[in-house]
Design a protein around this nucleic acid. Structure first.
Lengths: 213, 213
DNA sequence: GTTTACACGTGAGCC
DNA sequence: TGGCTCACGTGTAAA
C-alpha cells in the first residue's frame, strides 16, 4: 500500500471520476481490468448493477416518503424516521380502534359470569316446562303482533330491541315480563317506512335474531 | 477500460483506500489536500461526517426493520419495500376499523331523515300537551318502579334498554306504549348484582341517559 | 467462479 | 465560507 512517488492521491480520484464520467482520452488497455470497447473507458464489473441498486433504493425511499403524510425533512434519514413514527402512530391507532370496537361489542355481550345465569335459566325453564316460542300474528295491514318466549339471558332483551330497530321495525306497544328462567315478550310492531311486514318473514327474522345474537 | 501509459487507475483506488485505512507510511504532502499531522494520511474533509451519516441511515433502517413484522428479505431495498406494504396494510386496517366503528355507532343513532320525525314528534307532544317526565318509586328493598315519558325518536327505546343493561339494571317487567308523539315507558327494575338501587340516583341516571344519548 | 449486497471515501451541489 | 447531504464507482465478502 505504499509507493514512493508523491501526489499520487491528488490526481487519482479526481482524474479517475472525470475520466470515467466524461470519457477522457487516455485509453491504455490494462490487463486486469474490463474496458468498454466503444468508449475505451474503464468500467467496473458491477458498475451498472450498483447503479441500479442505488436507484432502486432511492425510488423505494421516494415511495416511502409518498405514503407517509407527516413531513419534517427531505433527508434520507428523516424519511425513514418519519416513516417509523408514522408506523408507530398507525399501530397505536389500530390498537385503540380495535380495543374500542371490542369494548363496544362486549358491552352488550354476555360475559363469563353470566353463563352461570344462562345455565340456571335454562334449568329453570326446563324444570318449569317452559318452551321457547316465537309467534307472529297479523293485526291489520301493516301491524303485527309478536310473542316471544326465550331463555332469560343478560342483555338479550336490549339486543333484541336494537336488532328490531336496525331492521326498521317500529315498536308500537311492547311488554316484557320476566320470570326466573325466561323472558316473555309481547309486542305490536310495524315497519318504520310504512312497508308491509310479512308474517313468515318476520318470524324467521325474529328466530334468526334470537338464535344468532 | 484501457489506458495506455500508466496503470494509474489500477493502483490508485485500491491503494488509496488501503493507504487511508491502514495508515500507510507514505506521506507525500499534497498542497491542495488535508493530511493528518500524526499519521500523515490523507483525510477528506467530510470523511467522518459522511461516516456518521451512513451509520445513522443504517441504524434508521434497522429500526424500521425492527418494527415491521413481515420479513421477506434483509436487503436494504426490501426493508423499505416491506415497510411500505406494511404501512399500506395498516392504513387499510385503520380505515376499515374506523368505518366499522362509525357504522356501529350510526346503527343506533338518529339519521338525517329521522330529524323530521323528531320535529313532528316534538310538535305532536307540544300540541297534545304531553310533558316529558321521569318518575321513580320504590316497590320493595331492591326493586324500583320507573315511568318515563319522552319524545318518540327512532332508536331511543332500544338505546335506553341497552344503557340500562350496561349499568347493570335488570328489567323485571317492562311496558312500552307509543302514541304519535311520545313514548310511555313503565318498568319494574332491580340491580343485577342484588345491590340496592337508590331512587334519586336512579332518577338522575335515567335523566342522564335520556338527555345524553 | 459468478452474483449480490454492502460499506467505503470522495466530489459536487446546496443552503 | 463551512456544514451537510447525496450520488458515484469501487473493493470485498458472503452466498
Amino acid at each position: 500500500m505504499e509507493y514512493e512517488d508523491e501526489d499520487w492521491l491528488c490526481v487519482t480520484m479526481e482524474e479517475f471520476s472525470l475520466a470515467t464520467e466524461n470519457g477522457c482520452s487516455r485509453q491504455g488497455m490494462g490487463k486486469k481490468r474490463n474496458y468498454d470497447d466503444d468508449t475505451r473507458e474503464f468500467k467496473s464489473k458491477n458498475l451498472e448493477t450498483e447503479r441500479r441498486r442505488r436507484e432502486k433504493l432511492s425510488s423505494r425511499l421516494l415511495m416511502l416518503r409518498a405514503i407517509v403524510p407527516i413531513i419534517t425533512n427531505m433527508n434520507k434519514a428523516t424519511i425513514i424516521d418519519d416513516a417509523i413514527t408514522y408506523i408507530e402512530k398507525l399501530q397505536d391507532k389500530v390498537q385503540s380502534l380495535s380495543q374500542e370496537l371490542h369494548q363496544m361489542e362486549a358491552t352488550s355481550d354476555e360475559t363469563a359470569d353470566t353463563k352461570i345465569d344462562d345455565i340456571d335459566s335454562a334449568e329453570d325453564m326446563k324444570n318449569l316446562g317452559i318452551q321457547e316460542e316465537v309467534s307472529v300474528a297479523q293485526i291489520d295491514g301493516n301491524k303485527l303482533w309478536i310473542k316471544i318466549i326465550i331463555e332469560k339471558r343478560r342483555g338479550r332483551f336490549s339486543k333484541l330491541m336494537e336488532a328490531l330497530d336496525n331492521f326498521g321495525i317500529e315498536l308500537i306497544d311492547t311488554n316484557l315480563t320476566t320470570t326466573k328462567g325466561a323472558f316473555l315478550i309481547t309486542s305490536c310492531i310495524q315497519d318504520k317506512d310504512g312497508e308491509r311486514l310479512e308474517i313468515q318473514q318476520t318470524k324467521h327474522l325474529l328466530q334468526d335474531i334470537i338464535n344468532d345474537k
